[in-house]
Amino acid sequence: MKSVLPILTIVGAILLIWVVAVIPMNMHLTADQAQRDGLVVTPATPAERQGYSGLGLSFANPDLIPLTYNLDRPRLPSPHQVAGEMWDTIALRNVTSRQSLVYHGWVTLSSTLVGFVIGTTLGILLAIGIVHNRAMDMSVMPWAIASQTIPILALAPMIIVMMGQFGIQGLLPKAVISAYLSFFPVVVGMVKGLRSPDAMQMDLLRTYYASASQGFWKLRLPASVPYLFASFKIGISAALVGAIVAELPTGARAGFGARMLVGDQYGNPLVTWAALFAAAITAAALVAIFTAMERLTLRRMGMAAA
């Protein structure tokens, strides 16, 4: 708990930088608007103002600064505008409405979760195979590790199109992308976890003449639990990124990715920013849920000092 104050300090500093940055970022737009509204702006014409930096223009027009925080279509929305937009689209809309971020969030989240479940299940199964079969280990493991170094996310648009050609649309193609993004981290993490018992532990089981399945259930599997949760946390964030990116290049009409794209294309930055923050909150919540589950499980297993 002693890090609460430092964390708040860092978050406060980030917010402060954001709030200050709003002024120069939005000053040109504000000045143009103020001119149209008949206020006195120095210099007087947009062409002349192009020669100024945002900062220089702010110093020339200090009385316009408050206006930079309330533009309809700002370059950089201020924190209260983003918060307001989020309040609007999360709390004040019916959750089934296309205007509701909860609706879009659920679209993204559902394919994330479906994909995550598929990816982690397959990942755990493959890891079990790798640990028990040497040929599988030598054949597959180098590829699983190499897959961590290449941007497999780039496959996303093609998966959507390929599956679309077979008439599969909607949740499933996105789930497939989430699945393969969470699959590899889980394979690598679980293999590490299932191999984490040291030679002495394995020898102990040999002195008992324990079978391979007894070794798996009594030693390897429980020993791998901390690694499993670490992989889950990586996997779920990767799955969410996968689902969002899958919504981008394909003209999806719902989901966080679609909202970001819509806000961008219709010049409505507030929509983009609200979707971005909602996605970040979703990711944080998912990771937090797994962290809590991890803590609970490890404590119940006696692996974490209470």
Partner: peptide, 21 residues
């Protein structure tokens, strides 16, 4: 003898499973 579980073995480290009492 190992298959007949003829002996108990004690290692240098206790090697107790942390997840078991």
């Amino acid at each position: 003898a190992r298959r007949a579980r003829a002996y108990g073995y004690v290692f240098q480290a206790a090697g107790l499973y942390p997840w078991r009492t």
